[in-house]
Amino acid sequence: MPPQNAKERFSNRVADYVRYRPGYPAGLIDVLRDLASLHPGTKVADVGSGTGISAALLLDAGCEVFAVEPNADMRHAAEVRLGANPRFHSIGAPAEVTTLRDQSVELVLSAQAFHWFDVAKSRAEFSRILVPGGFIALVWNVRQTDSTPFLRDYEALLETYATDYAQVRHENVNEAVLRGFFAEGSHQRRTLPNAQHFDFAGLRGRLLSSSYAPAEGQPGHDPMMQELRRIFDANQRDGAVDILYDTEIHIGR
């Protein structure tokens, strides 16, 4: 089960989240076209839409987007960014009770959010709001942890200083959970490369956008920042480091 403060734990992270969280590769839209029948005009429930990172991609593809987000601060950031688009609809609600009408969307997409949901309740809710034959897409940017010396050092930093890192990692949504969530035989998976290139200020913002990283003034923050400086200096090339991701896309009915 997700932690009890899941809906509010990003409220003090919004500015860093907007600036430093990774987007999604353009190929995501191609995968959704191929496997989930996405097309201009598709009605999409972007559930756990956060600051609008995935909603922006969907709007650029011509979709009508119902951005469902319970956190008011994150929702406001999305409204500032995307609210002028008439195909963007901001909805303050959780994944388990979206308030959308029965059979009102053709695709439910959850990007970097499903691991916060109650699996059984969200499954029932998605079934309710989807049209017959509609699709669900679950998307994560999965940070590589062992492919470069810097990424190994960064993972070690999180394991040392992050508060509840092991409990809230999206990797906790394993294959058994996904098999139980999707209709039997409908689950398809695709993986795309993704990356971010950071100077130290950007790396600091990326770390502090994570809800498990101690914020300024919290225990562990100062030694964590000292260690971040050390591993940056040890691994940087031309004043920057790379965070590499595998963008995992799970699609089914």
Rank of each mutant, 00 (worst) to 15 (best):
M1S: 13
M1H: 13
N5L: 07
N5T: 10
A6H: 05
R9F: 08
R9E: 06
S11E: 10
N12E: 13
Y17H: 10
Y17W: 11
A26V: 11
L28W: 04
V31D: 01
V31Q: 06
L32G: 05
L35N: 11
K43A: 12
K43R: 15
V44G: 03
A45N: 06
V47F: 06
V47P: 04
G48R: 05
S49Y: 03
G52K: 06
L59D: 07
L59E: 08
V65S: 02
A67E: 01
A67T: 03
P70F: 07
D73T: 13
V80S: 10
A84S: 15
N85L: 01
P86E: 11
R87Q: 11
H89G: 11
G92I: 00
P94K: 08
P94H: 09
T99V: 14
R101V: 08
D102E: 15
L107H: 03
V108W: 01
L109C: 09
Q112A: 15
Q112N: 15
V119G: 05
S122R: 04
R123T: 07
F126P: 04
S127L: 06
G134F: 01
F135D: 04
V139Y: 03
R143I: 04
Q144C: 12
S147P: 00
R152T: 12
D153W: 00
D153A: 12
Y154H: 10
A156H: 14
T160D: 10
Y161M: 06
T163H: 12
D164H: 10
A166R: 15
V168F: 09
H170C: 13
E171R: 13
V177K: 14
F182R: 11
S186E: 14
Q188G: 01
R189I: 12
H197I: 09
F198E: 05
F198I: 05
L207C: 14
L207G: 04
L208G: 02
S211I: 06
Y212S: 03
Y212F: 15
Y212W: 14
A215N: 12
G220V: 09
D222Q: 14
M225E: 12
M225C: 13
Q226C: 03
R229H: 09
R230Y: 07
I231Q: 00
I231N: 00
F232D: 00
Q236N: 13
D238C: 00
A240H: 14
I243A: 04
D246Q: 11
E248H: 08
G252C: 06
R253I: 08
